[in-house]
């Protein structure tokens, strides 16, 4: 069986959907962040699949893009987890249903 671009893109799509479900449904703020990380990984997988299979004048561009996505994801994870710890200090919870100070 020959592996084509479609196989990798399908895995990327399924991984993205699982991450989307985790990010939208989890009650714990850290669980939501884990969903976001899964989605970012799925996007990186898709970018690299296109970089490997596409006809391109500059095939290195896809890999460069992935390097930047990983960098931004690392920055996002650091700040978001710091926010979660900060919220926990003030409210003793990271349950997103109970972080409702702005709700009238």
């Amino acid at each position: 069986m020959t592996l084509e671009l479609e196989h990798f893109l399908t895995v990327g799509a399924l991984l993205f959907s699982l991450g989307l479900f985790v990010a939208l449904s989890k009650r714990n703020a850290i669980g939501v962040l884990m969903g976001v990380e899964l989605m970012l990984n799925a996007v990186n997988l898709t970018l690299l699949s296109f970089s490997r299979f596409s006809v391109s004048e500059r095939p290195v561009a896809g890999q460069t893009f992935v390097v930047f996505v990983i960098t931004v994801a690392a920055a996002e994870a650091a700040v978001a987890l710091a926010l979660a710890v900060s919220v926990y200090r003030n409210r003793q919870t990271v349950d997103i249903d109970r972080i409702n100070l702005l709700k009238s």
Binding site: F16, K26, N28, Q92, D95
Partner: peptide, 25 residues
């Protein structure tokens, strides 16, 4: 975040989220 609990449960939005994820996939 020790007192926040280790529960990894879902919110009430789990069903709409599941439907959206299936639609996206």
């Amino acid at each position: 975040t020790p007192r926040a609990g280790r529960d990894n449960g879902e919110t009430a939005m789990a069903l709409p989220a599941l439907l959206l994820a299936i639609a996206v996939a």
